[in-house]
Design a binder for these strands. Structure first.
Lengths: 215, 215
DNA sequence: GTCTATAGCCTGATAGAC
DNA sequence: GTCTATCAGGCTATAGAC
């Protein structure tokens, strides 16, 4: 799982004792099941019963580990944005510009392939107006994107990349890579014989080479 | 509204009489309000009360016009896929290949700009597994995309376009254009001073020119 | 720590007066 | 056609036995 695990927020009932192995195992089972259910049904569509059953627990037992449905959801979201931005954070100002961007694109695409549930959880949240993470978007996210956009602009000014709008370049990378996870059903309905991810990396690589290769 | 209006499904109660002006006006108000609410909250997140209030009606009065919450949702979805595919359908085999694709891209982007609620309604449905329109995706959608992908392949074979995977080309167009509607909140959080749509058309135009211009 | 039982709220849908 | 009142079911969360 890519989610950066916060130190487990000890529930009030556990009174700051270190979590036992069983507690850790159950917490992990709950979060895994919740990721399945929330990413497939959205927050309102999910029920605690579904999550509990899928985690092999009874409903009250689940609520022994988390105080509420929203607490589970928040725990999932908490580490997600950070993790989701790691590939961008890793873009290296000292590297070769075109290679740095292509490498970023591949990391992001790989992340969609490996963690489609996390991508859909995020997509559900954003499409519905990001009620729970809007602040993080305008602060942490904006800060990082501003920084990397400036870097891309400097690469363009140096003639290392063909000129493009750096913000829209980044948006396009998010869009193209996450699309394969978020709209998976649609893509499979159209290409019903093969795994869409088979050809996607080559297509997207070609796209950004032609877009960005300096003249 | 882009939604192709089916002949209004006369509710059982109206016994096939032609709808009066008041009925038409209320139906339209309900569908407009429902589009607001469903696109912002998803099917489960929306309540009949919200829709009714937003349409200026009481809850039972709304249910006089539509038999159930799901019936309203289905009515919205019914015309949507068709409308959503019109820009692709209009791609002309006799036109200039690059111009045809660029024109398609612009139609699609304009649609996202003009009808973001419809885009988000669709996104909500697909991200959650397209439970209500999966069949249409594997039939109508697949058929149209197969046809247009073959057309693009023939253009490539004729040397009129640079070689690319035609299906992934189409997916990329969907992805890039709908992203501006579906992830609007995120984009605005990052570019907080200007309308993201201002620069998007130029960026996307550049992207597809560089990707597809024959060598 | 885990269960059964249930409180209490929300929501979709209906009854019936006007 | 529109309303008030209300039912019935599903859901979150809690009580309390074990």
């Amino acid at each position: 799982m890519p989610s950066k695990s916060q130190p487990a927020q000890t529930s009030a009932r556990t009174k700051n004792r270190a979590p036992t192995r069983i507690q850790q195992k159950n917490r992990a089972a709950i979060l895994g099941a919740a990721l399945d259910v929330f990413s497939a049904q959205g927050f309102r569509g999910a029920t605690i019963d579904q999550i509990a059953t899928s985690a092999g627990l009874s409903k009250p037992n689940l609520l022994y580990y988390f105080p509420s449905k929203e607490a589970i959801h928040n725990t999932l979201l908490a580490g997600l944005l950070d993790t989701w931005l790691d590939p961008l954070r890793a873009m290296n100002p000292a590297g070769d510009p075109l290679q740095e961007i292509l490498a970023y694109v591949h990391r992001k695409l790989q992340m969609s392939r490996d963690y489609p549930r996390e991508s859909r959880l995020f997509a559900n949240e954003i499409v519905q107006g990001a009620p729970r993470i809007h602040d993080a978007l305008s602060t942490d996210l904006k800060e990082l994107v501003d920084e990397k956009a400036a870097l891309i602009s400097s690469w363009i000014a140096d003639g290392k990349l063909a000129p493009v709008h750096p913000y829209h370049l980044i948006f396009s990378i998010w869009s193209l890579t996450q699309h394969y996870a978020d709209f998976d059903v649609q893509i499979r309905a159209v290409m019903n014989t093969q795994d869409p991810f088979d050809d996607a990396p080559e297509f997207i690589d070609t796209l950004y080479r032609r877009l960005l290769s300096p003249p």
